[in-house]
Design a binder for these strands. Sequence first.
DNA 1: TCTTGTTGGTGAGCGGCACTCTCCAAGTGC
DNA 2: GCACTTGGAGAGTGCCGCTCACCAACAAGA
Lengths: 214, 214
Amino acid sequence: MRLAELSKRSGVSTATIKYYLREGLLAPGRRVNATTAEYDAGHLRRLRLVRALIQVGGVPVATARQVLAHVDDESLGRTMRLGAALWALPQDPEPDQADPAVAAARAEVDRLLGTVGWERARELAPLSPVHRSLVTAVAALRRLGYPVDAELMAPYAELMQRVARQDLDLLQSYASEAERVEAAVAAAVLFEPVLRALHRLAQEEESARRFGIE
Amino acid sequence: MRLAELSKRSGVSTATIKYYLREGLLAPGRRVNATTAEYDAGHLRRLRLVRALIQVGGVPVATARQVLAHVDDESLGRTMRLGAALWALPQDPEPDQADPAVAAARAEVDRLLGTVGWERARELAPLSPVHRSLVTAVAALRRLGYPVDAELMAPYAELMQRVARQDLDLLQSYASEAERVEAAVAAAVLFEPVLRALHRLAQEEESARRFGIE
DNA sequence: TCTTGTTGGTGAGCGGCACTCTCCAAGTGC
DNA sequence: GCACTTGGAGAGTGCCGCTCACCAACAAGA
């Protein structure tokens, strides 16, 4: 299939596909001659993933490029490839070490990891971008005056652990290894809007139950 | 306190504060004379909330304005004010009705609401922006080929219901009514990054437990 | 009193991002 | 032969969240 058909099948304009090719989000097609390149089902699949990451997941193009580069990195084993891809996702800047709110937030997060028994996360903490995101978010809330501490977060952490177990069970039901890495990225990024919407819907439901609808 | 001090105490530049004043995110100070206005602790508080909504929550300025207008709307009762503020948050465009993926997604979401017994959410469904967001997100995943259906979402919905109960218990522990509306907005928006980070951290932990760290 | 600096207010400009438009020479298909 | 399409590349667009420059009115120090 050529560019025009790839565009028609994916619903993405040719101009945008050309942009993704330029940005390295999509591998070039197999060149037939100077004015023709051939794309296959893999390209269509990848293009749909790219679109979903950017549009549904709200991932910046530059971040998506890094994530996908890790997904494609044949030199890494499966586990590493997955880890590398997921670690490339959060792009929060390094929090200000001098800020006392950041120090307090880090202390609370570390305390939380202890109380819920996340030993691996605690080992990975200094390296993990996700850990950094959590510290940044907690610091922001504390600066606003909300008393976010380990005790407050613990029940949420327990619930999220169950969610993660559910995620991984689901993931392991997928067949191929290549698919699994891609599916893991999709799960981490694309399932988030679903989870967020379910969360807010649950808030609406619970709020309506407690206070009624007016 | 005057502009310069408000800026220093909040860590937001005077230019940005002026911008927020122009955009209606922040009420003007009490004018003392032609070149002086006085700001109080309420302004500082609101400014911090605005910052957090925009920076931590990633809420667009225009959306934040609407949300805050509802928070301030004295003509509404507390429940309505809260509901209106939260409903102003999601800004997804109306999904394409003709798209079969959207129709299928809506059917699955409605089926989900039935199986988990969210009756209020089902009543509110045609109006609720959150319901719309959920349908859009599910449709995107289905278009990518992921079989997201009511059965798959049900355990997640149950877990999110528990999260929502936790949210509301926490909220009811807050003292003043005015604070509660603001706290509810903060909880809905600002706690999301914390929840997301906890989710990903839990994924890392669980993944490391199952597959080891390499 | 004179000077120097600061105030709130406003229009215009900037940088980043995700495209999108325009053009091109090289080829395709009737 | 000739209209059309192809892949490629640079420049332009529109939006968004600021940020800058400038203004007249005033405050504060010498």
